[in-house]
Amino acid sequence: MSIRDQKPLRVVLYEGRDSTPLEGEQRFAAVSRLLQQGFAITRVGGAGRTAPADDSAALVLGRFGGEKAADFSAGTSNGQVRVRDITGLDAEQVAAEVEAARSERQAPAPGAWKPWFPVIDYDRCTNCMQCLSFCLFGVYGADDEGHIQVQNQDNCKTNCPACSRVCPEAAIMFPKYKAGPINGDVVKDSDLQREKMKIDISALLGGDIYSMLRQRSERAQSRFSKERDSDKALNERQKCLTKLAQAGDIPAEVLMSLPTPDEILRRAGEARAKAQAALAVQQR
């Protein structure tokens, strides 16, 4: 199931009317514990606004005391809201209550996916489609008007920032990346020059990366037919992957999980066709 189709359990820590507020330290302990567990928490009470209501299943936690909790539950509209009285519970016990409720409602388990995906800065993006052409995993696509989009975030390979390195405008961010400007920090002129130098992958590998792979594949097939020297082919591929890893800061596990050269070429062809189609839509 795509991340976009999942409806997580919402947790509301209610400390408003008809409840007894938690002390600050207890509130901190409970909220910290739930965040570590991967839940989102809406704390209601006192000044300020929150945005808790939607059609997700919700669990309302509070120190209600007996019958008041039941009244609260009866006032909810769609049966999606459950109430738990947490009077006397410590942070661990609160977390256990929330996890039990999540399991009971069959809401997705938080933390199953590390949210790592490209975020496009449309103030910088020129819609050149380099990213769409480059990505082998179908993360990118284009809308009906030919604008580049990140369409399948959960297809992205965790910790791999390679597509940001092929963007000529430093328009692709990975907010969890270690360094700027890929992490979202301000883009400086020096960054632009450095990024271009660092991963002009094409230049690094002596031409278009996919044409290079195609040539390698053809050479390998030719060699196999003549010599069946699989060790040599493997060495070639490892050399190529090492270059990519160093130039693009691409995790070794991502590179080692790449499909076969032929499959890479097939996917690259598909991606390039999508990019060309999107560019054609723009030019209409």
């Binding site: 507020p21 509130r27 901190f28 991967g38 809406t42 704390r43 009470g45 790592w116 975020v119």
Partner: peptide
């Protein structure tokens, strides 16, 4: 938490965005 203000706390903003 000590402030008594209402707030939203999320484990990961990127996840909400996705």
């Amino acid at each position: 938490c000590d402030s008594g203000r209402s707030f939203e706390a999320v484990a990961d903003l990127c996840e909400l965005s996705a």
